[in-house]
């Protein structure tokens, strides 16, 4: 049976389409449609076309405050996960000589993921709390008189929880691109007289760029799209973009929430495309 060329191409991508269309394209469309509807105030939607929902979101000073908070947490989390992720990956790839040991240590990095996100986050509370381990230890040692307040239910606690949850998303792609660096390339640099710092700066960082970009996308999109960690760890002190439209949903303001969601999606898409512009991610995936 002769199948036309375009038909075969469609067949090739059909498994992906079967997943993407119902689980990604359709929900986005539903949200997009809802964002231009009006609400009757009781959870019902009035089919119409209005940009008023976007207008409300974009003109509210609250939106900009929320974005400022969320971007702040994103940048802090990104910075610390990158720092940790890069050096953990570097250690595993270039300092652990025995490949079996490297894989073992790599697996240990994933151990925290054997428990749920929420448990991992909540487990910080007895550690950071007012009567938590850190505060009582410092009090007993006489280093402080009053318990440190900033440890829990603060921006600090939010960043700690995010970094704890997301460092692995940096380690994996950076490890992956570092593991592909030919050891002889590093030796060639040593041969040319490069110091350890030179090698890091001129060879390893540029060659891990795609891994760094991939990890950054993971971390940034997760933090931007999360509200739960911010809510719990800040003790309600900090709000987040997603947290705000979660509130809208709980008061049945679906169109407003949908408009916020679309705006966030667009912002994330712009961010990701900017990151992708700086590196050739296709190389990382296909090689």
């Amino acid at each position: 049976m002769a199948v036309s060329r375009s038909m075969t191409s469609w067949l090739y991508i059909s498994p992906l389409m079967l997943v993407l269309v119902p689980f990604f394209v359709l929900p986005i469309l539903v949200v997009l449609v809802a964002s231009v509807f009006e609400t009757d105030g009781f959870g019902g939607l009035i089919p119409t076309f209005t940009l008023a929902n976007y207008g409300t979101v974009l003109t509210s000073g609250l939106t900009y405050n929320l974005y400022f908070e969320t971007v702040k947490f994103t940048i802090l989390t990104w910075f610390f996960t990158l720092l940790l992720g890069f050096f953990v990956a570097y250690f595993l790839v270039f300092h652990v000589r025995n490949p079996l040991l490297a894989i073992g240590l790599f697996l240990i990095c994933t151990v925290p993921f054997w428990t749920s996100n929420i448990i991992r986050m909540i487990s910080w509370i007895p550690l950071l709390g007012k009567e938590g381990l850190i505060n009582s230890a410092l009090l007993h040692l006489g280093l402080i008189r009053e318990p440190l307040e900033f440890l829990l239910y603060s921006g600090f606690a939010v960043v700690v929880a995010y970094v704890h949850q997301l460092t692995i998303f940096m380690i994996v792609p950076i490890f992956n691109s570092m593991a592909r660096i030919d050891k002889r390339v590093v030796e060639a640099a040593i041969d040319a007289g490069a110091s350890r710092f030179d090698i890091m700066r001129l060879i390893i960082v540029p060659l891990s760029k795609s891994g760094i970009a991939l990890g950054s996308i993971f971390v940034a999109s997760i933090v931007m799209g999360d509200f739960f960690v911010t809510k719990v760890m800040s003790g309600g002190g900090s709000a987040s973009v997603v947290g705000a439209f979660y509130e809208d949903i709980s008061v049945l303001q679906y169109p407003g929430a949908a408009a916020s969601a679309i705006i966030l999606t667009v912002i994330l898409l712009v961010m990701v495309s900017l990151i992708l512009r700086s590196v050739d991610i296709r190389k990382e995936i296909t090689q």
């Binding site: 002889r184 060639a188 640099a189 040593i190 041969d191 040319a192």
Partner: peptide
Amino acid sequence: LPPVARGTAMMFQSYALFPH
């Protein structure tokens, strides 16, 4: 001694050029 101090230079198998 490190390679530079020896005055040697090495050409590696499959060259090990810096790909970037």
